[in-house]
């Protein structure tokens, strides 16, 4: 029951994100736009490239969706609304997100097309850039909560939310999650301008619909992760817990979409350089500061 409710709310969230993205892309706010787009995709012929690696080609969109859903499974929407409250929840989020990379590599290789292949390998480079910036801020969060349980992480923010307690970590995690969900300006694997769609270039019809859905769920999942780790999860006055979660998650995903929308796409080499020369030192400083702060003012 709980699982069903959470999956349905995730899908609803993904729909809203899609509405927002369509609004950004076309400049018109239409609530039905993603539905029509989905119907159009489902009705369209599913073209398969000439010699695909059939197994990878078919699995990739599904794997993307599953990875996003699995990461969401450990994130609580309210004290009781969590699919699986694992004792290693914060680590499990990382583990599930790692499979986004596998899905994109499969899509890139399986499509048997140059652009898709380039897109897939580009994402591998992107992962090497951002992965430490996902892991290290989460470590700092877990340090403050003294637990990997996501519910404990939320309740550790009772007094002060982590966004104020460890602002550096929040900024790093926020930027890195935009890179995980390959949102602009980090949309290297699907770069519309220079790769003509990249990993999703060869996908049409139902498969493309699943791929897009997976990405939207991924955005929502990452927004939920940001909410749980930094914005105090379900906490807030007056409104019920789930409502606060929903508001925060939608606000964060809107910020993620809007944040990079006007920026030019970053170059792969620059992304790596910035992440390793600036991001990782900052993440280490953040770990140190949080470590000291936990001792003097938990």
């Amino acid at each position: 029951m709980n699982t069903l409710v959470i999956v349905l709310s995730l899908l609803a969230g993904a729909y809203l994100v899609a509405v927002l993205e369509a609004w950004l892309a076309t400049g018109r706010f239409r609530l039905a736009a993603p539905a029509w787009a989905a119907v159009a995709l489902l009705g369209r012929e599913s073209i398969v490239p000439r010699t695909p690696d059939r197994i990878f080609f078919e699995t990739a969109p599904v794997l993307l969706l599953i990875a996003a859903l699995l990461a969401a499974a450990v994130l609580p929407l309210s004290p009781s609304m969590v699919m699986a409250n694992l004792a290693t929840g914060a680590l499990f989020v990382n583990a599930a997100l790692a499979y986004v990379l596998v899905a994109l590599l499969m899509a890139g290789w399986g499509s048997d097309s140059a652009y898709a292949l380039v897109g897939g390998w580009r994402f591998l480079g992107q992962v090497i850039a951002y992965s430490m910036l996902i892991v290290m801020p989460i470590t700092a969060v877990a340090m403050r909560a003294e637990s990997l349980l996501t519910t404990d992480i939320v309740s550790s923010q009772e007094a002060v939310w982590n966004i104020l307690y460890q602002p550096i970590g929040f900024v790093l995690f926020f930027v890195a999650s935009m890179a995980v969900a390959f949102l602009p300006p980090f949309d290297l694997p699907i770069a519309v301008g220079d790769l003509a769609g990249g990993v999703e270039a060869e996908y049409t019809g139902v498969r493309l619909a699943v791929f897009r859905l997976g990405r939207m769920v991924l955005v929502i999942t990452l927004a939920a992760a940001t909410t749980v780790f930094y914005l105090g999860g379900w906490m807030g006055p007056v409104l019920p817990p789930w409502a606060w979660s929903a508001i925060k998650i939608l606000a964060v995903s809107a910020a993620m979409l809007l944040g990079g929308y006007t920026l030019p796409r970053i170059r792969e080499a620059h992304l790596l350089a910035w992440c390793w020369k600036l991001g990782i030192p900052l993440a280490l400083i953040n770990l140190f500061i949080v470590g000291v702060m936990v001792l003097i003012w938990p």
Partner: peptide, 21 residues
């Protein structure tokens, strides 16, 4: 062995993808 299992699942995804390239 929950921690080790999750760690294994996480580490190998990146490691083997790098192997692939």
């Amino acid at each position: 062995a929950e921690f080790l299992g999750v760690l294994q699942i996480m580490m190998m995804a990146t490691e083997m993808s790098i192997m692939a390239i």
